[in-house]
Design a protein around this nucleic acid. Structure first.
Lengths: 218, 218
DNA sequence: CGACGGGTTGATCCAATTCAATAATCGTGG
DNA sequence: CCACGATTATTGAATTGGATCAACCCGTCG
């Protein structure tokens, strides 16, 4: 999606302010009034939904360049929590202003719609993962997804730091933390990865891909 | 996903054509070029994604009044299949025209954004269900969700027909069809529902709600 | 230092799957 | 219209993947 210089100038007007979110604190919480989207400048966030009876589910991890807060548009209230996994900085994009400018700059409108649609597609992928994959398949898919996103941002696709705990990975993948830990150990044993606490190196991404597609005789 | 009657009237102006989809046939398939959204006039659809290795996951069931096809916006290709579970009729909404009109009619633009956001929120709910609920909790939540949607359309919230098979329910809920069948039988035994093949009557919706929130000593 | 959060690993358990048999229902063509 | 093969659904028995319970390690921070 290309923006012309003049379009870019318009877009600049969107960003009102920046905001820092220290590790462990929330950018917003479920129930908060919605009035802005947030573009992640740097850092790492998780989104979580919590059911009435207190079960928490991580619905996504977000890194620099991604847009969060889309859940708030539907009812003008946020439906999930967005919590910083490390010190994080976001651009605040007032939503009313975005809608207004989008209606005048077609390319921006189109782009915005694509971003929302992409989020829907991403979630379909997560549903596929949660609904039909085994523990190790889920974890392998997760690692490959992280890898690909780091690469897209210019970082190493083979070596990176897991900003989230095993419990948070487990919540996202519908697994218990022990299962995540065991699967990581098994991958390491099989020479697919090297893990050292939060530091991770992918040694054999094809091997991980084979696991994702269930080509593993266990 | 819900359009009010007056919204529908506005949307009518957008509609180029109608299209009938016989039971079992696809409105679109993954990989098809995207150029339109579809408002369901009558009938019932399922959306499914299929992984490279052939696993299929039902990502949603759609009924009259709902909008489908949003997944196609991101890349201009559909990435899931939409298949009719019964003879179905849709309004075809050419997407370019929608974008154009939306930029001129703020209320429509806002509404469209809310519809997309609601889909994201809905999917968060499904992730919570898939990631952290047990079989019977999932099924109870599913039945209550259907019930509520039928009610919103003026049908009975206690008595309706399941248009999908047990296998399709299972796929959506991340369960096997036998598990779905067993859970239904158990609910029936416990006096929560009456089932007769595809016909279903909810006898105790509070009981189902209690199950959803895990207040069941099994 | 001691406590505490995060991680690993082992032993056991159980919910859901798998395998299997049977029944009910549907739809299609003679 | 009815018969018959093909789906779809139910139910039982055996199996198993991941959860649970528990012990222990490591690093960090007050």
């Amino acid at each position: 999606m290309q923006l012309s210089p003049s379009d870019l100038a318009t877009v600049e007007k969107l960003v009102a302010t920046r905001r820092k979110v220290p590790r462990g604190e929330a950018l917003y919480r479920a129930g908060d009034d919605f009035d802005s989207l947030y573009a992640l400048r740097l850092g790492f966030l998780k989104s979580t939904v919590t059911s009435t009876d207190g079960r928490e589910q991580v619905t996504g991890f977000h890194m620099a360049g991604e847009l969060v807060g889309l859940d708030g548009i539907s009812t003008q209230k946020h439906h999930c929590d967005a919590v910083a996994l490390e010190n994080t900085e976001v651009c605040v994009i007032p939503y009313e202003r975005l809608e207004h400018i989008a209606s005048e700059v077609p390319v921006l409108q189109t782009h915005f719609h694509k971003v929302m649609s992409r989020e829907i597609v991403r979630e379909h992928g997560v549903m596929l993962l949660l609904g039909s994959m085994h523990a190790e398949e889920r974890l392998a898919a997760f690692l490959l997804n992280l890898s690909q996103r780091f690469e897209a941002r210019g970082y190493s696709r083979t070596e990176f730091v897991l900003r989230m705990t095993r419990a948070e990975i487990g919540s996202f993948l519908g697994l218990k933390l022990e299962t995540v830990s065991r699967a990581l150990s098994r991958f390491a044993n099989d020479g697919l990865i090297e893990v050292n606490q939060k530091h991770l190196r992918i040694a054999d991404s094809d091997g991980l891909r084979a696991i994702v597609s269930g080509q593993t005789l266990r």
